[in-house]
Design a protein around this nucleic acid. Structure first.
Length: 314
DNA sequence: AAGGAGATCAACCGCCGTATT
DNA sequence: AAATACGGCGGTTGATCTCCT
């Protein structure tokens, strides 16, 4: 029954930080043979490590296509918005940030972004304004309006419900696709894959689009991040200006207008809010896909319907 | 200059879904 | 169909670094 015993139960395997020699061995072996079966790799490569440790070292550190260093403003925005959409699904988020690993994104979220949102009075888990922060965290009269507006946009329960429904749809769709056709070649299909992720780009966009398609208007992201948000969070108008450019680049400039309108006009239609928010996400996702080879330049495809099409079948 | 506190990040752990026998 | 291994994921830890007093 089953497979042969697991090597991880072997004694004498090394743990802890990798030495340059170990890195060299692993790198040389993978360059020559590919990683193949991780479990058998350490033996073949002459490493006293378990396969799991080798895989982790490779995917998080040694892979040649990893971009290290400071996250850009656009990457931060992408992470925050995708986190609002997907929650702590770091591998799915990493799918939309080429050259960044899920581990790196997770660390960055936990050490930087989570704190920053909390500072802004936004619950980093639900992405809705915290009750105890209303009117206070960022200070001033304008922030009061901002929190009211954010609260207006916040229907967390509905959001969660729509999210779960979309997730279930996604799983069904993935199964159907797997049955209908063999998996395409990873690089030739145009799919944007994270080597650390099992979630394909198409699945992710489908997820976004199903939520967008919610006819009850239930799916919404609680908080829209605007240049003004960033200006206060960073305390840096230049950074906010850059973000404004990024937003425009990604065709979500409407979010700023919508946000301003929401602050003064409670009559803004919920459908419009949904449309604007989700098209922002879609365009952002789209822009990250279009730049998968080098940097995160934004060349938004103007027709989101391209990505919405699969969802119409549900 | 030294010590402590907080921040950062690489790596481990344990769980889960899928593949394999 | 059941048992088991494998690969992958998210949460957590702990060593190291940086900043502050």
């Amino acid at each position: 029954m089953g497979r042969s015993p697991c090597c991880e139960k072997e004694a004498g395997l090394k743990k802890g930080p990798w030495t340059p020699e170990e890195d060299q061995k692993l790198l040389a072996f993978i360059e020559q043979h590919g990683h193949g079966c991780w479990r058998s790799l350490p033996g073949k490569a002459g490493l006293r490590r378990c396969g799991k440790s080798c895989r982790l070292r490779w995917t998080n550190y040694l892979r040649p296509d990893i971009k290290r260093g400071k996250f850009t403003l656009q990457e931060e925005q992408t992470i925050i918005q995708l986190h609002a959409l997907l929650g702590n699904r770091w591998s799915a988020i990493a799918t939309h940030l080429p050259k960044r690993t899920d581990n790196e994104i997770k660390n960055y979220w936990n050490t930087h972004l989570k704190k920053r949102l909390a500072k802004m009075g936004i619950d980093p888990v639900t992405h809705k304004p915290r009750a105890d922060a209303a009117g206070g965290a960022a200070g001033g009269a304008s922030s009061g309006a901002r929190y009211r507006a954010a609260a207006h946009l916040s229907h967390t329960a509905q959001w969660e419900s729509a999210r779960l429904e979309a997730e279930a749809r996604l799983a069904r769709e993935a199964k159907l696709r797997a049955l209908a056709s063999p998996p395409p070649a990873p690089t030739a299909s145009g799919r944007l894959e994270s080597p650390t992720s099992t979630l394909s780009f198409s699945e992710s966009t489908l997820f976004a689009s199903t939520a967008h398609d919610d006819t009850n208007g239930a799916a919404r992201a609680p908080v829209i991040l605007t240049p003004r948000f960033y200006e206060e969070a960073f305390g840096d108008a230049a950074a906010a200006g850059l973000l404004a450019g990024v937003l425009l680049d990604c065709s979500v400039a409407g979010a700023e207008q919508r946000f301003a309108a929401a602050s003064t006009d409670a009559g803004v239609s919920e459908q419009e809010e949904d449309k604007s928010y989700w098209s922002g996400i879609l365009n952002m996702v789209n822009s990250s896909m279009s730049s998968s080879s080098s940097s995160l330049t934004s060349e938004a495809v103007t027709d989101p319907a391209l990505y919405l099409a699969p969802a119409a079948e549900f």
